[in-house]
């Protein structure tokens, strides 16, 4: 095994779980999320050593692949059975599981691109320009999707949702 491949393997080992979570929040299906991560990291393998910031590249590729997966016609997508058969028993308290299921359902009601913007900005901590670059859209669209995504989430959950001060400052600038 070459040094380059060893580096790539180490990178995948440390980043895979985070990327799966990122893809899941974007597309809303663990199976589809895995497909997106697999496709994105396979692409990164071919570019390894030529990419300046592998973390940012992988994050962007995974989110884009997850969005693309949601657009694929249903007949070209393998059916996921993840919802029907849990992969492993839920280890934590019932209330926590209920909360999580509730949260996931709420997130799934937010349009996929709005959700992607919220995830990149508030979970991954990307700025408006960075999010716009990652999703290849204008900064104005990122701001609009942030506003609309937050509004939708507030309406669905029926609670006030706070965002970081840095992001609020961006809103002010809209």
């Amino acid at each position: 095994m070459s040094d380059t491949e060893a580096e790539f393997r180490e990178f995948v080992g440390t980043q895979m779980e985070a990327l799966r979570g990122l893809a899941y929040l974007t597309c809303g299906d663990w199976q589809v999320a895995e497909d997106a991560v697999l496709a994105a990291l396979a692409r990164l393998y071919g570019k390894w050593g030529r990419v300046d910031n592998p973390e940012a590249y992988a994050r962007t590729a995974v989110v884009r692949a997850a969005i693309d997966e949601t657009r694929r016609p249903w007949w070209r997508r393998e059916q996921s059975h993840g919802d029907a058969l849990p992969d492993r028993p839920a280890p934590d308290a019932i209330t926590s599981v209920d909360d999580r299921v509730h949260l996931r359902r709420a997130l799934l009601q937010v349009p996929v691109k709005h959700r992607a913007v919220l995830v990149l900005r508030f979970l991954e901590g990307l700025s408006v320009p960075q999010t716009a670059a990652a999703l290849r859209c204008p900064e104005g669209t990122v701001k609009a999707f942030t506003s609309r995504g937050l509004e939708a989430l507030r309406a669905i959950l029926g609670v006030e949702i706070r965002t970081e001060e840095r992001v609020e400052a961006h809103h002010e600038a809209v």
């Binding site: 895979m16 979570g21 895995e34 919220l118 937050l150 989430l153």
Partner: peptide, 25 residues
């Protein structure tokens, strides 16, 4: 409720992955 915490909670407890690092390579 803080949005970053909400998103963290939503992606917590993922099912076991169906692929490994070897599959990706």
């Amino acid at each position: 409720m803080k949005l970053s915490e909400l998103l963290e909670a939503a992606r917590a407890e993922p099912p076991a992955a169906h692929f490994t690092v070897d599959d990706i390579v």
